[in-house]
Simulated scan of single mutants.
Amino acid sequence: MGILHKLQVAFTIHVNLILLILPTISSSQEHMKTIGSHTSIKENKHKPSPKLQFEITLHGFLLWASMGFLMPIGILTIRMSKRQEFGRRLKIIFYAHAILQMLAVLLATAGAILSVKNFSNAFNNYHQRIGLALYGIIWLQVLVGFLRPQRGSKGRSVWILVHWLIGTAVSLLGVLNIYTGLQAYHDKTSRSIRLWTIIFTVQISSIVFFYLFQDKWVYIQKQGMTMCNEPPRISCQEIPADDKEKVLKAESC
C-alpha cells in the first residue's frame, strides 16, 4: 500500500505540473504568433505593391532618360557648334540641341508629375530635395533659352555665361539625383543597385571623356593643318655661299 500511495502522489504531482505548464506554453505560442503577425504587417507596410514598384521604376527611367542621357547628349551636340561659324550645318546643330533639351525637360516634367501624384513627398531625404531644386532650375534654363539675344548684341556675352552656369548646375544636380534615386530605390525595395550604378557610372564617364576630348580634337586637327601648311625651311648649309650675305642682310632688315 505504501508503494501504491507514493505512485499516486507522484502521478498527481506530474499531472498538476503538466496542467500548470500547458497554459504557459499556449500563451507563449500565442505571443510568438502575435509578434510574427506584427512583423509580417510591418514588412508588408514597407514592401511596395507591384503597382507602386512599377511607378517607381517608371519614374527612375524617365529621370535617367532626361538627366542622364538626353541632356548630356544635347550638351555634346552644341559643343560641336564651335567648329562652325555660320551656315546650314550650324543651324542643324542648334536645332538638334534645342530639340534634345526640350525632350529632356518634358520627360523630367513627366517624372515630376508622376512623383507628386503617386509618391509621399515629405522632402525628408536628399533625393526629394535635390529633385525639387532640379525641376525649378530646369524651367529657369528654358526661360533663359527663350531669351537668347542675337549674335553681336551687348547682352550676348552675359547671356552665354548665365546659360552655361545654369546648364552646368542642371547637369551636376541631374547626375547626383540619379545616384540618390538609385539609393532611394534600394531602400524602398531592398533590391540590389550595384549593376545599375556601375552601368550609369560608365555611361557618365564616357560622356565626360567625349566632352573634354572635343576641344582637344579641334586643337590636334589645327596642329596638323598648321604643320602641313608651313613652308619647308631651308637650312644654312643648303644656301650657296654667295647668297648667304643677301639672306643675312634681308633678315637684319
Rank of each mutant, 00 (worst) to 15 (best):
I3V: 13
V9Q: 14
V15A: 12
L19G: 05
L19P: 05
L20M: 07
L20V: 07
T24S: 04
I25M: 09
S27P: 00
S28I: 09
Q29F: 08
E30K: 11
H31D: 00
M32V: 00
I41G: 07
I41P: 01
H46R: 04
P48G: 01
I56S: 04
I56N: 06
T57H: 09
H59P: 02
G60M: 03
L62C: 08
L62D: 03
L63I: 03
S66L: 01
F69K: 02
L70E: 00
L76P: 06
L76K: 12
L76T: 12
S81K: 07
S81H: 02
S81E: 08
K82T: 10
F86N: 15
G87R: 04
R89I: 13
L90R: 09
I93S: 13
Y95N: 10
A98C: 08
A104Q: 02
V105K: 00
L107I: 10
T109Y: 09
A110S: 11
A112Y: 15
I113N: 10
S120R: 08
A122V: 11
F123D: 06
N124W: 02
I130N: 15
I130Q: 13
G131W: 14
A133E: 09
G136N: 12
I138A: 05
V142I: 08
V142Q: 02
L143A: 14
V144T: 07
G145E: 03
P149C: 04
Q150H: 12
G152W: 04
S153Y: 06
G155K: 12
V158H: 05
W159A: 00
I160L: 10
L161Y: 06
L161D: 01
L165F: 07
G167Q: 01
V170Q: 00
G174Y: 02
L176S: 06
L176H: 01
Y179K: 07
Y179D: 03
L182Y: 14
Q183C: 05
A184K: 15
H186M: 09
K188M: 11
S192R: 03
S192K: 02
I193C: 05
W196H: 08
F200G: 12
F200H: 14
Q203Y: 15
Q203F: 15
S205R: 09
F210K: 04
L212K: 15
L212I: 14
F213A: 15
F213V: 09
D215Y: 10
D215Q: 08
W217D: 11
I220R: 13
E230M: 14
S235F: 10
D242W: 00
E245Q: 13
K246Q: 06
V247I: 10
L248K: 01
K249S: 13
C253Y: 12
C253Q: 14
